[in-house]
């Protein structure tokens, strides 16, 4: 009797979640309740970081400070021409009758946890609905696109990485604008690009950036670098693999992108 009841509950839950997506509110509530556990599980790593920061010597801190100063000088130097280039870009785009690119706002979020299941690439972030995070929001780190937010609760949110087997992102080759779709494989460190004709101009080392098609990801964020191109004359499509640019398994701080004119979906 009890077994039958349990079976009914399980079957209902799985169908409701998989096929009807009915449980998102319940999930976000439960997720909020689960946050303390994640915090607890993250505590050892946090303590490690903290003690490492505490016991650093004065010399190494000074050294790091100097390095950061140098780095910031270099970056400032590089961005000197940014203003004029941007103005020029806007003028040229106006000449071409296309809309000006607006710079996106970002919000720094910290990782609270990662999915314990190696086949599922999800991150738990410490920013949620109270920080105006929304479902579908793109997530980047210093090197490129990480993924997108798939579930938001009050103070945390869950993001899907671009390498998850259920994730795809529209990209274009930075060199020549060839468009394609980069799909996750479930392996951290490889994306696959499907349905690219064998004659398409795409080569190892090409940078893939977001194309902005589909309206979910803003244009121009680096996604991956093509690492393998295999053209088999017997196959209609080339087999292309790419290595994600972002440090998918190393970033502790990530950036949530607010697209300038996008409305929060839902």
């Amino acid at each position: 009797m009890r077994v039958l009841l349990a079976a009914a509950v399980v079957v209902t839950l799985i169908t409701a979640d998989l096929h009807f997506n009915k449980l998102s509110t319940a999930r976000s509530l439960l997720d909020a309740a689960a946050t303390p556990l994640y915090w607890l599980a993250d505590l050892p790593a946090r303590l490690g970081d903290w003690s490492e920061a505490q016991v650093q010597t004065r010399a190494s801190l000074l050294e790091e400070n100097e390095r950061l100063h140098r780095e910031s000088l270099v970056l400032q130097g590089r961005s000197l021409q940014m203003a004029s280039l941007q103005a020029e870009n806007v003028r040229l785009r106006a000449l071409l009758n296309s809309s000006a690119l607006v710079r996106d706002d970002v919000l720094v979020a910290e990782l609270v946890g990662v999915s314990p299941d190696p086949a599922r690439h999800q991150l738990l972030l410490n920013k949620g609905a109270s920080d105006e995070v929304f479902v579908g929001q793109p997530l980047i780190d210093a090197d490129g696109l990480l993924g997108q937010v798939v579930q938001v609760s009050a103070s945390t949110s869950r993001a899907l990485l671009i390498t998850d087997a259920t994730h795809s992102v529209p990209v274009q080759v930075n060199r020549n604008g060839v468009r394609a779709i980069a799909e996750g494989t479930g392996a951290l460190g490889t994306l696959e690009i499907h349905h690219v004709a064998a004659t398409t101009d795409i080569a190892v080392g090409d940078l893939l950036v977001t194309s902005g098609l589909g309206g979910r990801f803003p244009v121009g964020y680096p996604v991956a670098v093509v690492s393998e191109v295999e053209r088999d004359p017997g196959q209609p499509f080339a087999r292309i693999a790419a290595r994600p640019s972002a440090a998918l398994d190393r970033s502790r701080h990530v950036l949530l992108v607010f697209i300038a004119d996008a409305q929060p979906k839902e």
Binding site: V3, A7, T12, L13, D17, R27, P116, R120, R158
Partner: peptide, 20 residues
């Protein structure tokens, strides 16, 4: 199992099923 599903971000019912 339901608790674990929420924690893992799995399909609700996955671990509930297996643990049952």
């Amino acid at each position: 199992g339901i608790g674990l599903d929420v924690l893992e971000g799995a399909v609700l019912g996955q671990n509930a099923f297996s643990l049952t």
